[in-house]
Design a protein around this nucleic acid. Structure first.
Length: 497
RNA sequence: GAGCCAUUAGCUCAGUAGGCAGAGCACUUGACUUUUAAUCAAGGUGUCCCGCGUUCGAGUCGCGGAUGGCUCACCA
């Protein structure tokens, strides 16, 4: 029995497409031409370089490599489209240029195969910049057929689970992730150029802090102890400010064990930035300068279009206190509301359900979320937050019930959060104790006491401005993607059976 | 966590009233030395998401489940 027949038996329960490709591979292997034994290929040019510099490249011999995306055979000559990192280029393969034996081999190449090709750059009669192939080498056999060339891969389930296929066939997806990488790189560059130090703090931590969220719990075997995946790097970064690093940032993953939605993934990327001797107003300037500079660098403009709506990121951005915003959009003036009872009555008049134990500040915050957020389409800083919802922010010197905190809203979404950091260890300890009470009362998202963090503040932390920005949401904005899953290479998915 | 919708060939999708499972792309064979959604001729695609039920008969109707999408809740 020949090897081919043997393989026929081995592959007989596969469908035709899979069977044929495996047979082609087996045939190559039996002839000592196994593509998978090739370890490298010398690439001299990318398709984009060739197209961008055609005037200089015309007539030159280049080597390109990539994936065959389509084939148009015409007997003794063929065209195929080769896709590499950023673009595609057409290959023109003629029997008289590569020889009959090689041409027979080439005819068996499939869409999806990885090949290397060498030849002269030229333009066809129809004007297509192409490579006139002198040598073509199969570098990897594709055993799976690619999705259809015209419609691509649309099934969101498959796109997220098999992102590699999505990236191959949907150019706009590839573009999004290239842009994501450039955005992150531009953010780093902006901060590095201004003397910030990028640091890394623990993801595995005994006490999750710096945000209100339910954490993931994991277990360390040797220490025989449960650890939490961080929900924010904040408390570690402020310890570094105490330690004298003065200007630090961390760009990394945080984990929150909460619901998933079009805007929420259990793990997401955040940047937190801390600068000693600055306050929240300085952080507003840093925020608008950082985001507009990154936009200018990666998109070439500060006027972007998101979901059909123009958004102008040119600084300075709108600034409004929370009280002003609630007055403007809800028509409720908290300047004249001094007690919880008044606040509750105002909420009732707006048909807003308020739970019994809420304070005046929490009702203000609730009204803001309910009636204001959605209106903040253009970049807007909302500042001066009630102390009850800001356990890590410094009180306003003029109003001890309010804190020097702001959040940034764009397209009705919270994009960033910042404050003049609370550096009074006694106040901080009291606020932790309040959070601990809330926790004891069943609020799983309330902070835990972090004694060591309080201890660090007791050594003295300079007045400090701190800022956090959701990187995924920024990428969504810049790439005009509506779902967070479209800016995450591998969004969290339930496994299939 | 709740509601609504979707799941049919490798991919994108049709499938009428419950009566033999369809198209395009891809694939196979043949023709074709500047095509480009190449063209022309011929050919085969299958766990109709899974299970149970109703029925002479289920892709289609009912119940349960899986996965995904959207909306709401929680949050960034």
């Amino acid at each position: 029995m020949t090897e081919i027949q043997d393989n026929n038996r081995e592959f007989e329960d596969l469908n035709e497409i899979l069977r044929v490709r495996r047979q082609k591979l087996a045939e190559l292997q039996s002839k000592g031409k196994d593509p998978f034994t090739i370890v490298k290929y010398d690439v001299t040019s990318s398709s984009k370089e060739i197209k961008d510099n055609f005037e200089q490249m015309e007539g030159k011999v280049v080597s390109v490599a990539g994936r065959i995306m389509s084939k148009r055979g015409m007997g003794k000559a063929s065209f195929c489209d080769l896709q590499d990192r950023e673009d595609r280029i057409q290959l023109y393969v003629r029997i008289d240029a590569i020889g009959q034996e090689k041409y027979e081999e080439f005819k068996k190449f499939d869409i999806g195969d990885i090949v290397g090709a060498k030849g002269e750059v030229f333009r066809t009669h129809k004007g297509e910049i192409s490579v006139k192939v002198e040598e073509i080498t199969l570098l990897a056999k594709s055993l799976q057929p690619l999705p259809e060339k015209w419609h691509g891969l649309k099934d969101t389930d498959l796109r997220y689970r098999q992102r590699y296929v999505d990236l191959i066939v949907n150019p706009e997806v590839k573009k999004t992730f290239i842009l994501r990488s450039r955005i992150i790189s531009a953010v780093r560059k902006y901060l590095d150029q201004r003397g910030f130090l990028e640091v890394e703090t623990p993801i595995l931590s005994p006490i999750p802090g710096g945000a209100n969220a339910r954490p993931f719990i994991t277990h360390h075997n040797t220490l025989d102890m449960d650890l939490y995946l961080r929900i924010a790097p904040e408390l570690y970064l402020k310890r570094l400010i105490v330690g004298g690093l003065e200007k630090v940032y961390e760009l990394g993953r945080v984990f929150r064990n909460e619901g998933m939605s079009i805007k929420h993934n259990p793990e997401f990327t955040i940047i937190e930035i801390y600068e000693a001797y600055k306050d929240y107003r300085d952080m507003m300037e840093l925020t608008e300068n950082l985001i507009s500079s990154v936009a200018l660098e990666v998109l070439g403009t500060t006027k972007i279009v998101y979901q059909g709506q123009e958004i102008d990121l040119t600084p300075p951005w709108n600034r409004m206190t929370m009280t002003e915003a609630v007055k403007k959009f809800a028509g409720v003036d908290f300047e004249n509301i001094k007690t919880v009872e008044e606040a509750r009555r105002a909420a009732q008049e707006k048909n807003l359900h308020v739970e019994k134990n809420l304070t005046r500040g929490e009702i203000l915050s609730l009204m803001f979320e309910e009636f204001v957020e959605e209106h903040l389409v253009q970049p807007t800083f909302i500042y001066d937050y009630p102390i009850e919802v800001s356990p890590l922010a410094k009180r306003k010197p003029t109003d001890p019930d309010m804190t020097e905190r702001f959040e940034l809203f764009i397209f009705g979404r919270e994009m960033g959060n910042a404050y003049s950091e609370l550096n009074d260890p006694v106040d901080q300890k009291e606020r932790f104790l309040k959070q601990v009470e809330k926790r004891a009362a069943g609020d799983e998202e309330a902070n835990m006491m972090d004694e060591d963090f309080v201890n660090s503040l007791e050594y003295g932390m300079p007045p400090t401005g701190g800022l956090g920005i959701g990187i995924d949401r920024l990428v969504m904005l810049f790439t005009d993607n509506y779902s967070i899953r479209d800016v995450l290479l591998f969004p969290t998915m339930k496994p299939r059976d």
